[in-house]
Design a protein around this nucleic acid. Structure first.
Lengths: 212, 212
DNA sequence: GTTTTCTAATACAGATCCGTATCCGAATAC
DNA sequence: GTATTCGGATACGGATCTGTATTAGAAAAC
């Protein structure tokens, strides 16, 4: 052991550890509730190391936000890339969600913390907004494709349908953490699947409903 | 002016002002980011007054959580109580949402703050869980009734459909704050209305969709 | 009008946190 | 090998927060 590390590697590792420790502590006590000292200590370093690697807590939060959103987008892309059929894609998403459900509390807490931080930090908002927009865009395309495949007209602007599906992700996560018994592991995927089916029905079966 | 206040009234008023000031500050800087001193100062009192009225910040948060959830439930009940038809009910909800949209950022920030606090404070969780459960229950009944009226079978457990509608509330709120341009004022009500229509279609028009 | 009770202000001690400035040791350059 | 550079630890001043203990002034009791 005691492998020799080049300076770059060492610095990289330190930054990574600080980021990971910060993520944990943010989930546990919130961004404001976690001090620089606690972060450094959990990562196994001193406050000096922290300030050597980040301009301050805000800078670290920004980088964490970047890293997480990027990674999440990648994971979803990878998960669905290999799927040939719609069912396969859903299965892949299901698996991904099940995986994430393992430590859901901290996941949600961290996401909400970063979100709140972004809401309050104007210069961070575009970053999040952009990522959310991209997610909605991808979803919209998927919805459009699925409706097409079912031979149904879109019952509303696909962008709006995608927004609904996307919003469900956060909303169901929240409900699940508040009341784990009422929301199953796969609620998100199940819900989106149901929505797709019902939109297909609505778009493909005009005249059945009075339409009010 | 300078109306004479009885002691009870005075104390009541003080508590109310402290609660209101705390709500504002929590939305702005988070529960952890708002100090007792700041709360007292914004309310126009000193820290002594605060500790005279609350055991500490946690106690205030608990009471705020209680007050808010109770009030919100009441508002929705009142708004929909006078509605005779489904359209009227939706209109009432739309109006309520539009009203709330005026200062959406602080509303969402406060809700998320309280939510996060509840997630991290085990003794507060049942309180929130109970209220959310009640909301879902009421929604489930509404969904069931609407599907019945449309002569459609429920395409899934009404509790699950209600969960979806309920989750959308938070999820869309989040998206709206992140990207105000992409989510209209009445997105929540519009979305729920669309879902009801499509579920009715799905439940009432079997055979139209292959069901995969 | 006097006494008692209670609300809210002020004062104080302890703890924590932040950011910087300085110093040590290991990795690089020579 | 020696000199230099850089990552990280330690030390410090200043600010802020918390909770309690004490105190002034208004409402209630008599």
């Amino acid at each position: 052991m005691a492998e020799r590390l080049t300076r770059q590697e060492s610095r990289r590792r330190t930054r990574g550890r600080l980021l990971a420790a910060a993520a944990e502590l943010f989930a546990e006590r919130g961004v404001n509730g976690a001090s620089v000292e606690q972060i450094a200590e959990r990562a196994g370093y001193s406050r000096g190391a922290f300030y050597g690697n980040f301009a301050g807590k805000d800078a670290l939060v920004a980088e964490l936000l970047n890293e997480r959103t990027r990674r999440e987008a990648e994971e979803v892309r990878e998960a669905t890339a290999g799927a040939a059929t719609r069912d396969e894609a859903f299965d892949a998403l299901r698996a991904w969600n099940r995986d994430r459900a393992r430590n859901l509390d901290s996941w949600l807490a961290l996401r909400m913390e970063l979100l709140l931080h972004a809401i309050r930090t104007p210069e961070l908002r575009p970053l999040l907004a952009e990522r959310e927009q991209a997610a909605r865009g991808a979803l919209a395309e998927g919805v459009r494709r699925e409706l097409d495949r079912g031979g149904a007209a879109a019952p509303a602007d696909p962008a709006f349908l995608a927004l609904i599906a996307h919003a469900l992700e956060d909303g169901l996560l929240i409900q699940r953490v508040l009341d784990p018994g009422a929301v199953g592991d796969e609620a998100v995927v199940d819900a989106v699947e149901l929505l797709l089916r019902s939109w297909t029905a609505l778009g493909g079966a005009p005249g059945e409903e009075g339409r009010g």
